[in-house]
């Protein structure tokens, strides 16, 4: 930690820090990773200053480490997110998220006439563009863009 810089969200001893989340998408990230359903200690801050994003959010999850596949699921809503793996207050690993080529059962198809909005069908998309996000529905073949993106 640099001297003179005060942390807005206090440090954790062991666990994962997810930084550079767009403020508006903090709760989407929480939902996608299922953080609302776990018992670990979680601290987060939002509307923090960020040179890159203007305004960012950060989440610190104690004693929890994620599989790469899980973490890439947040790429849709936080494509610039950075992950730090913390052990004994030190950053031991850093990861960036990569947008997967296809995603399953995360997002909702925006097309009201799509079969996935009528029957119990898991949604599947291919990612046709990562920033801004554009998802092509495997079923109705319509494109869901960032503006219409809803996380299930």
């Amino acid at each position: 930690m640099k001297k003179g810089k005060q942390l807005s969200v206090s440090a954790i001893r062991n666990g994962t820090v997810i930084d550079h989340i767009p403020s508006g998408n903090l709760f989407k990230v929480i939902l996608i990773l299922g953080l609302d359903r776990i018992d670990n200690q979680i601290t987060f801050g939002t509307n923090l200053e960020s040179d890159r994003l203007g305004s960012k959010a950060i989440i610190k999850i104690a004693d929890r480490f994620f599989e790469e596949e899980d973490i890439n699921r947040i790429a849709l809503v936080a494509p610039e997110a950075k992950l730090n793996i913390i052990r004994d207050y030190d950053v031991v690993e850093k990861h960036v998220v990569t947008v997967p080529k296809s995603i399953k059962a995360i997002a909702k198809c925006f097309n009201p006439k799509c079969i996935t909005n009528h029957e119990n069908v898991l949604t599947r998309f291919s990612v046709t563009n990562s920033s801004p996000v554009a998802l092509k529905c495997h079923y109705c073949e319509k494109i869901t863009d960032e503006e219409h993106l809803t996380i299930i």
């Binding site: 079969i115 495997h138 073949e141």
Partner: peptide
Amino acid sequence: PIEGSARYASEVADVPVINAGDGANQ
């Protein structure tokens, strides 16, 4: 009439499915 219904049917069925029109899709 529902878009994507043919793709879904082709995944559910063991026999081939021919899409003769699924809404405004294909």
